[in-house]
Amino acid sequence: MNTENTSLRVLVAKVGLDGHDRGVKVVARLLRDAGIEVIYTGLFQTPETVAAAAVDEDVDVVGLSMLSGAHMTLAPLVVAAIRARGVDIPVVIGGIVPNSDVAELKAAGIAEILGPGAPADEVVAAVRRAAANAAV
């Protein structure tokens, strides 16, 4: 698995019906600026299509951008769909996620959770941390 010194590959994804794609696109560019390779599969993905793309593309981290309030339902399904493929690619969520949901999401296997307004360096650090922890 990659660490900080080598190039990371990240899949950024929109799951479900949420069309708010400002955040995912900005984050994709910020990650690229940080030297991370980014793959974006577009809107209206399902947990299954995200998991399949993550495995096919052999990514180190999956980043989900969720702003419609469906994160409690869909994010754990993404984790489960990835694990069902026999791999353990860490999942990071960003978007409108209230602090009160963090504990439950962590328990469901989400590696990192970024709240609204997280600055670029925090986003990059969370992705690198998720990859590093998964590599241990």
Partner: peptide, 16 residues
């Protein structure tokens, strides 16, 4: 334009 029982609607019905 999806119904509430559509598989894609999971987790989103009545939410926003």
């Amino acid at each position: 334009g999806l119904d509430s029982d559509d598989p894609m609607s999971l987790g989103e019905v009545g939410r926003c």
